[in-house]
């Protein structure tokens, strides 16, 4: 782990993150509050409000993970431009939300009951208005009588300050599963 140098005259380290503990705490707090609020919107199924949390150029992406040997782990995840589970822009995310609202969206009707847990939140870089944040997540879903699915993994988000509020500009979702054990991915991560 890199230790910030005391003698560094500037107030930011090479990742662009603030040096002082107060500024770090403030950033951590702001980032966490944004992510928690966003998660609450999703669990409350307030999807159109959630869309307002996104920048217009958002890239929402979940690559495919593969079981590889230890020396081949660079090929573990597919790359951008290759196949993925999600490779969405704002238009497509809007279509997903619209789809759930127009009726007869069977995978979400009756609605899934979901709970998003966001933990291990770490701002890892800050450049201009963009803060790159890594976090672990657990998305629990249960449906109907007794259907149960769960996804755990890591998210790498870019939160952008837009008129003093954060907006989500990028969400890259890295699951732990290779073969998805769930019948679909009809929820938002």
């Amino acid at each position: 782990m890199r230790i910030a140098s005391e003698s560094n005259a500037g107030t930011r380290n090479p990742d662009g993150l603030p040096e002082s503990i107060d500024a770090k705490m403030r950033l951590q707090y702001e980032v966490e509050q944004f992510l928690y609020e966003e998660a609450a919107l999703l669990d409350e199924r307030r999807f159109s409000e959630w869309l307002d949390f996104l920048t217009d150029d958002i890239h929402y992406w979940m690559p495919i993970r593969r079981t590889t040997t230890a020396k081949d782990t660079e090929n573990e995840f597919t790359e951008i431009g290759q196949m993925a589970f999600f490779d969405d822009d704002k238009e497509l995310l809007t279509a997903r939300v619209r789809k759930m609202a127009v009726g007869y969206a069977w995978s979400e009707d009756p609605p899934s009951r979901t709970r998003h847990f966001v933990t291990n939140v770490r701002p890892i870089a800050m450049h201009g208005d963009d803060v790159t944040v890594e976090a672990n997540f657990h998305l629990y879903r249960t449906r109907l009588e007794s259907e149960e699915d769960g996804w755990r993994g890591r998210r790498r988000d870019v939160l952008r300050r837009v008129s003093s509020q954060f907006r989500l500009a990028k969400r890259h979702i890295y699951l732990e599963q290779t073969v998805l054990l769930s019948p679909n991915l009809s929820n938002i991560f």
Binding site: I64, Q82, M83, T178, V179, L180, S182, P183
Partner: peptide, 11 residues
Amino acid sequence: AVPGVQKNRIR
């Protein structure tokens, strides 16, 4: 073939 085979399980 494009790299990446999506695999998921349906009951």
